[in-house]
Design a protein around this nucleic acid. Structure first.
Lengths: 231, 231
DNA sequence: TTAGAAGTTTAAGCATGCTTAAACTTTTTG
DNA sequence: CAAAAAGTTTAAGCATGCTTAAACTTCTAA
């Protein structure tokens, strides 16, 4: 019989808390600095009032620092837990795609739910089956058990590529189902090699060649496609 | 664009409601007739007061008939939904056991949670991968999409076998983790052939031979082991 | 630098589903 | 068959996390 110490770190957080930590973690990576009430509210689809209340509670649990009217910043414990939610999410996405043939544009919504309910035991089994993968089906990095996050070191957004560039698609950083389906149809998927055949001055539309096919991609789309230049 | 009719049948029930329907469904199969408040409370680990309240709500949704002080009886809609929860549970158990190497004595608790969150889409993918199986890792029948439940037609509890019987183990109808681990260690698992080598008059202890090994099983355990006589 | 706009917080209220304690009904038993 | 025991229901209260409306703070632009 072993003695298990129940610390703050061990305790399981509520679904809502996990959602907040994940959302705030992601927002911190964008607007590095403090995260605003309204941004969290938008991300989670709740009112600012709800965020305001919830954030106060998370502060008392020492998951984040909260300065009223100023914003919020995750503390180490909050970062750790946020990363773990993302780890579960991305491993589930990859597992569903690889082993249950669930198309890329559908894995997100399934994982969005299951990330809160798959036990660590189960997650680690999936991780092992998948061979301790580094990236999910959209090329997003999967934090390891210790929270270490792999990177696409040399990747740039396709919107910053130049005419003539040959590059490999390494990430699509958006999970809109319609967009993902469209890209899939165009042959724009992770691992594929493309050549930038032209960029319109007018609005930045990027024309790419994928094998025999060509495809035109708007600036907004290109900002979500990350590529590794080969040349 | 298609028109989707949202009927009572389509609506997703709360986790709690699903737990109640599943519990009541199982209890109806035991004490065929009406199910008592306290039995539900015991099964779910809540107070009778909680059951009393909840059952009233389920009655207004026409999932069951409720006569105060008398008990509860599922209506067709309740039966259908109860079966679907059980279907999800058992398919998940089987999937976890077959594809993620999760031992039999651990699949129950994982499935207990996931049964509420795996989408129908996902469940049907698993069903297909598994080849539309009829029984879960404990030999329990898996209702199909239409609620049809396969049976072990000729099975009897091991507690009713006779000395000299040769039979195949088809079901262990208990999910106590310790018991399951014990049976696994004794070689008593689904599909295995055993010979009843003796039964003690004193307390009904059954002695069985499994290949070279022998094992003694209490009456209580034998009531949970279902076998198909071969001879 | 100050008024209005934009953003945030507080307050009151709701829904779900649980608890305990008290009241009530049914069953058992002497 | 009546009193005690067993079982059930009602009532009040709690926790979580959401909403709207009102109050408050901060930012922005003239």
């Amino acid at each position: 019989m072993s003695i298990i110490k129940i610390t703050d770190e061990t305790k399981k957080e509520s679904i809502s808390t996990e959602d907040y930590l994940k959302a705030i973690y992601k927002l911190m990576n964008v607007s590095s600095g403090s995260v605003k009430t309204q941004d969290i509210a938008n991300k989670l689809g709740v009112t600012s009032a709800a965020v305001s209340e919830m954030v106060k509670k998370l502060a008392t649990k020492e998951l984040l620092d909260y300065i009223p009217y100023k914003g919020v910043r995750l503390l180490p414990e909050g970062i750790k837990k946020g990363k773990l939610v993302i780890r579960r999410h991305r491993l589930i996405e990859l597992y569903l795609h690889e082993y249950l043939d669930i198309p890329r544009n559908m894995v997100h919504e399934e994982a969005e739910v299951l990330e809160h309910f798959a036990s660590d035991y189960l997650i680690n089994k999936m991780d092992k089956k998948l061979g301790f993968p580094q990236f999910d089906p959209h090329g997003a990095p999967i934090p390891d058990k210790n929270g270490i996050i792999p990177t696409h070191k040399t990747a740039i957004p396709l919107s910053e590529s130049k005419k003539g560039d040959v590059c490999k698609i390494v990430r699509v950083s958006n999970f809109d189902s319609e967009l993902l389906e469209h890209l899939e149809n165009e042959g724009i998927t992770i691992g594929v090699l493309i050549t930038v055949s032209g960029i319109l001055e007018f609005d930045g539309t990027v024309q790419v060649r994928i094998g025999e096919k060509t495809s035109s991609l708007s600036t907004k789309i290109c900002q979500n496609i990350w590529v590794d230049p080969i040349n």
